[in-house]
């Protein structure tokens, strides 16, 4: 049986080689070589240049803010969904996932149309005599885009964990004299940590590396580290520097995942 399993694994091994190992090796290769072919660490060290560091700081900040906002929205929502009649039937959760059926670029582009100075939202605001919003092309617009695009990735894992919490545990806690707050902080939250951790990973990492959202909603005025890497590949045709910076980002992501895993005692589950 074990032998048969190995044979079955072969397509997936090929898939992993083509889809993961070769790309990572080529990033490492480009990241560690200079334009004239020699081995160098300059591409990795470039992260410490003023411009890149600034972009990295901004990316970390925006990713952190949008992850926190997502968490603050998603956790209560998961709790509500768990207890509601519709939540149990999966209808509400379906409604939240529905936008994910649409392409993420289109959804971001839709925000562009909505938020633009003479866009849909402002036309409505002016029509009813309210002051106009000026969120387009600011960091606020990027955070809005990130929260909108990544929120389902926070809701789903948390909802999954919360809805599977054994009712008897809560009843036992009440029987032992715990009040609602104690039950929430001592039973529900500790039990939902795996979901929270995996939600944070799934929101924080794409938010940290995005360049599409900042491009479309930042008006080209706000450079995140993802934009800098993208520019190196597309405009400056400097694959070496772009790969070097990508490698540094990978290290950042690995560190943040290790940190998160410390909280998740069940282990492994959050490694997406």
């Amino acid at each position: 049986m074990i032998i048969a399993n190995k044979k079955w694994a072969s397509p997936f091994i090929i898939w992993i080689i083509i889809g993961t190992i070769i790309p990572i090796l080529s990033i490492v290769y480009y990241g560690m070589t200079s334009k004239d072919g020699g081995v160098t660490f300059a591409n990795l060290g470039a992260i410490f240049s003023h411009d890149n560091l600034q972009a990295l700081e901004l990316s970390l900040l925006l990713a952190l803010v949008s992850t926190i906002i997502c968490l603050l929205i998603a956790f209560p929502m998961a709790m509500i969904l768990k207890d509601s009649k519709y939540g149990k039937q999966g209808f509400l959760i379906f409604v939240f996932i529905l936008p994910m059926w649409m392409n993420f670029l289109l959804r971001t582009m839709a925000w562009q149309v909505l938020l633009e100075r003479n866009g849909v939202i402002n036309s409505i605001l002016t029509a009813v005599g309210l002051p106009r919003q000026a969120i387009m092309n600011t960091p606020g617009a990027i955070i809005l885009g990130m929260v909108y695009d990544f929120l389902p990735f926070m809701i789903l894992p948390i909802y999954n964990v919360v809805s599977k919490i054994d009712k008897h545990l809560l009843e036992a806690a009440y029987d032992l004299g715990a009040n609602k707050i104690t039950v929430f902080t001592k039973v529900i939250i500790p039990l939902s940590v795996p979901g929270i951790v995996s939600g944070i990973t799934m929101v924080f990492i794409p938010a940290l590396t995005t360049f599409v959202i900042s491009n479309m909603l930042g008006g080209g005025k706000i450079n995140l580290i993802g934009n800098i890497i993208e520019q190196e590949f597309t405009v400056n045709s400097n694959w070496y520097l772009g790969s070097g910076l990508s490698l540094v980002m990978m290290v950042f992501i690995i560190i943040s995942m290790l940190l998160l895993n410390k909280f998740d005692k069940t282990g492994g589950a959050s490694l997406v």
Partner: peptide, 13 residues
């Protein structure tokens, strides 16, 4: 299963 596995990988390649 061996044949099928080979076929699958061939199809992918």
């Amino acid at each position: 299963s061996l044949k099928l596995a080979m076929l699958l990988s061939l199809a992918m390649v």
